[in-house]
């Protein structure tokens, strides 16, 4: 069920992937009147609102709509999960027996693998064939390297801030389970995860531009925006890990003479290190790949995913493909690290 919610939220909020896919299909920059999803529309209007401020109310409306829709749908989904019981207790001996043997299990397994290959993996990596067969264009790597550096700076800063501020909150939530406030925080911290990032980004952009009307430090705005939707990833992971640890460990440490900070550092931290790292890597890669929120906060932002979207819009497919491959490789390396750290965890 958590999986269903995550899928739903991710799909609802995806901007970059949608824009690129659509722009590639049309073979040109998207314009109004094209097939749109909520987040791409926000991106488009946000772009236009730089020259035409009258679009801002409409933009707000779409953002609010998306946020409300996301929350309502989340609520509905939760209700459905609670209310609708799958007929788990009933058994149908004959059909179930039939479906459990012979060709059916094999059919099930092979169709699952085929789906993974055809719908998920092959299209994702199709880009490699494009680079191999395509004609190398006149490539100017400068802007991409710049964008990549910005993306890394943003992602690192975001991860660092997430960790420093997220771990204390996670500890508070996990250790005051019975408290009202803690239960409320536990629910609230998930909200940015479910709200479409483009809408969230626009809201964040409005908020921060009130404080800093000239957008004097766009990179700061991007960092702040990214924190909003990566923070829950760190908190979620750490809360889960801390809850899995018997409080008796820390209590024993305290009676052995350890101050609360010492008992965290020497006892709890080593036990949840893996989960903290996993959360950090998830936050890092999420920030590295985010398009919608970045665009919604700063329309002319210059991070790697935004740069790739721009390349696609300009039909510089070869460069875009190379850039994608580099991002894919980086993400893959991080994925490997993630798997290693999560496997090493000893509890």
């Amino acid at each position: 069920m958590t999986g269903a919610i995550l899928c739903f939220a991710r799909s609802l909020s995806e901007t970059g992937g949608t824009i690129i896919a659509l722009a590639t299909l049309y073979g040109r920059r998207m314009v109004e009147g094209d097939f749109q999803t909520g987040p791409t529309l926000i991106g488009l209007w946000k772009d236009a609102s730089v020259t035409d401020p009258s679009l801002v109310p409409a933009l707000s409306f779409v953002s609010i709509l998306l946020i409300i829709l996301a929350l309502v749908l989340l609520l509905l989904l939760k209700l459905v999960i609670i209310k609708v019981r799958l007929p788990m207790r009933k058994v149908w001996p004959t059909p179930e027996k039939l479906l459990s043997r012979g060709l059916f299990p094999k059919l099930k397994d092979s169709s699952a693998v085929l789906f993974l290959l055809l719908i998920v993996l092959v299209p994702s990596f199709f880009i490699f064939t494009y680079v191999l067969t395509g004609s190398p264009a006149q490539a100017d790597w400068g802007p991409f390297v710049d964008a990549l550096v910005i993306s890394f700076v943003v992602a690192s800063a975001v991860t660092l801030i997430d960790l420093v501020t997220g771990i204390p909150l996670a500890l508070y939530i996990a250790k005051n389970r019975s408290g009202r406030l803690s239960q409320m925080l536990d629910v609230l911290v998930n909200v940015p995860l479910i709200v479409p990032t483009a809408a969230l980004g626009f809201s964040l952009g409005l908020f921060w531009s009130n404080i800093d009307p000239n957008a004097s430090a766009p990179i700061l705005l991007i960092i702040l925006a990214h924190i909003a939707f990566t923070y829950p990833l760190v908190v979620r992971n750490v809360v889960g890990a801390v809850e899995g640890v018997d409080p008796a460990f820390e209590e024993t440490a305290r009676t052995l003479g350890a101050r609360p900070l010492q008992s965290f550092r020497r006892v709890l931290f080593p036990m949840i290190k893996g989960s903290i790292l996993a959360g950090a890597i998830m936050a890092f890669t999420r920030s590295l790949g985010e398009t919608g929120a970045t665009l919604a906060v700063v329309a002319n932002a210059n991070t790697a995913p935004v740069y790739i979207v721009d390349l696609v819009n300009e039909q510089s497919y070869y460069l875009a493909a190379m850039a994608c491959i580099i991002l894919i490789i980086i993400s893959y390396v991080f994925m490997l690290l993630l798997r290693r750290f999560t496997r090493e965890e000893v509890v």
Partner: peptide, 21 residues
């Protein structure tokens, strides 16, 4: 008084040996 200042050591049912040490 906080537990760490009492010099009264608790041994829990499950011993709570620190697994990472």
């Amino acid at each position: 008084l906080e537990p760490e200042k009492r010099n009264a050591v608790l041994l829990s049912q499950t011993y709570s040996l620190f697994p990472t040490m």
